[in-house]
Nucleic acid binder design. Structure first.
Lengths: 192, 192
DNA sequence: TATTTACATGAACAATTGTTCATGTAAATA
DNA sequence: TATTTACATGAACAATTGTTCATGTAAATA
């Protein structure tokens, strides 16, 4: 459909613009300008500036949830599950670096009640990760840890990726990132 | 001095407000309101909204640099240096959680040429960390790693702290965070 | 006592913002 | 051919924004 194509091209353009300048700093006129059209025309594609942000954020959030649910429902070992979680984060970063950057940087600009929904979804996601770590601890695959700290620290190791992938022209090889981060997470930096 | 006290109280109030709503979303009128005064009065304390942000960001950035320089110039082992870097991050988070949150979340709102200066300073900081990791790798304290990935992954493990410390009423014990994160960084989550 | 200092006000400003409206048009569809 | 659809325009709006100005005042300082 011609509509889809045009709309998608519009979404892509404004996504990059928002990433460059930030959501608040990007005006409807900025978006129009980068599309070579008038401001009013932008409203043929979206309802409001807010809804634009919501579309992006809930879209990528859903993708993360769909991916982790498949992993959790599998009968892989805890270690294998963590390995797969690392992989989906890197996969999504390669496929949708700008959406990922938005997810990290711009969710604050959501308004209630969407903001509450978003944060609730994020807690659910964190809890899914937490459950895998807990499972692994109980199975003695993982060492005894403060589960909260371990969850946040682990998730943090995956949260810088988008930054390098959106800004730099030279992309680091995703396979290498996956190996290096997995090694870091499972056995740290010390030469044992 | 009475001036210092009042100005500092003002800085503290607006710092929290900016953290709550975001820099762009916080208006001068918001700040005035939370101080129970008129907008114009705010300009007795600062030159502009931008300079307010700059004060915070370069202040905390300098603290990080001062702290890491002391560590780098010491003759501690690489492992000990990494341990100390973890410690200063946690110390600063406990002492100045709001400044830290700003450093992570709001630097994008700086304008050139301050933005360039800030980013350059950040690269310098990352390079200092990188040099410690490299040194440790060469001394065979640390395993062979892609040094870029290791640096960003390591720094990330410290970048979620402020979030929990500003939002939650219940503070996690800093000593425990330090131990847990050090263990994570040096030997990972696997039960060896 | 005279003067400086730090803090305070209210009104006004020019610019920017998201959004709406009436209207138009080329291409696809019925 | 008639009509719907998707995309497009320019003007206008009400609200919000950071900042300035002239002016005031209580307390500290000279």
């Amino acid at each position: 459909m011609s509509k889809m194509t045009k709309r998608e091209r519009f979404l892509e353009t404004s996504l990059k613009l928002i990433n460059e300048k930030g959501f608040k700093a990007t005006t409807m006129r900025d978006i129009a300008h980068s599309l070579n059209c008038e401001v009013a025309n932008v409203y043929n594609y979206i309802d409001s500036k807010q809804s634009l942000l919501e579309t992006y954020l809930f879209g990528i959030s859903n993708e993360f949830h769909a991916a982790i649910d498949t992993i959790i429902d599998s009968n892989a070992s805890s270690e294998e599950k963590i390995r797969l979680i690392i992989r989906i984060h890197i996969d999504l970063m390669v496929k949708k670096p700008y959406e990922l950057a938005l997810l990290v940087n711009e969710w604050r600009n959501l308004k209630e009640p969407k903001l509450g929904t978003f944060l609730a979804e994020r807690v659910v996601y964190e809890n899914k990760v937490k459950s895998v770590l807990k499972e692994g601890m109980e199975a003695k695959d993982f060492k005894p840890m403060n589960i909260e700290i371990a969850t946040y620290t682990f998730l943090s190791t995956l949260r810088w990726l988008h930054d390098k992938y959106t800004d730099l022209p030279i992309k680091i090889n995703p396979k290498e990132i996956e190996e290096q981060i997995s090694e870091f997470v499972f056995s740290g930096i010390s030469k044992k």
